[in-house]
Amino acid sequence: MSELTSGVLVFLEIKNREISRISWEAMAAAHTLAEGHGLSVDVALVSSPGNPIFETIHGKAPRTVYAIDHPLLHEYTADGFAAAYAQLIEQVNPSYVVFPHTYQVRDFAPCLATRFKQVLISDVTGIETHAGAETAPPTFIRQLLQGKLNAHYRHRGTGPCFLSIQAGAFRADAAEAGATTLATFEPRLDAAKIRTKPGEPFRASAQTVDLGSASILVSVGRGIKEEANLPIVQELATALGAELAASRPICDSGWLPMERQVGSSGQTVAPKVYLAIGISGAIQHLVGMKGSQCIVAINKDENAPIFEVADYGIVGDLFDVVPALTAAVLKAKG
């Protein structure tokens, strides 16, 4: 298909039988890139062409949708995916290859790029295109040192440029009408060359409380006053899909079991969101949760040390704020 003009090839990913949200975001990033450089966008997806999933492809219409179809791709292996993707890239010969930055992509894309003597620019958060695209290639922005530094990367030389796009960095485009061709691509794969043997995915059994792996923690402190008041924070935790944690005095009083205690004599946690409710923020507690990505503090004492480490704070009576928050969360989740 060398008659096609060079373009941007986006590999989408299926999760729970749907094209994942981050895939749409990667497609939006690809369109940003394509528009800046007058390129067209093609997408590819591992699936049999008869899959109704193709009808769900939305956003700005791609030029071609490739259905990569092979029995050896029914379960993910790095060897299988890298080989199949490499063959499609050779055929399509794009200028840019764009992935969503997922665990699966991280597993095979660096290897794929290496086959083309390229380096994946991973976890891209922004793309700056410049006027005169031929002479001024785009700048890719990514974060270094855990977000404490932004870096500008540029691709040099010939050959496709490989990118993976960070979740949430681009907003998925609204649907637009357009002509799309669906093409089936059947890679040549050799079962003998697939060296890894993947097992069935499974969820870790939730037998014990594991604060360490929870992505949201709702943590309660002495501000709750009485054991009888615990249900209001439990309701918030349930609404958020969060685990309930506590500071030491709560567990000391036996209101919650010791394994839910966060702090120097309890667990050290680093969830995506840590909601500290009625916790003043003694050092013993802070050391157990300081690594959290986002800390929310709800406390009626505006001078409570917890506000020093919080990203968001609400100064107020937790008995008013927490029920309001539960309601707002439930409303937002529909």
């Binding site: 390229q118 500008h152 990367y153 540029r154 030389g157």
Partner: peptide, 14 residues
């Protein structure tokens, strides 16, 4: 060293 294909051009504080 073969010529790098990806270059870190500059860094900025967020």
């Amino acid at each position: 060293p073969e010529a790098s294909v990806v270059v870190l051009e500059r860094v900025l504080l967020p």
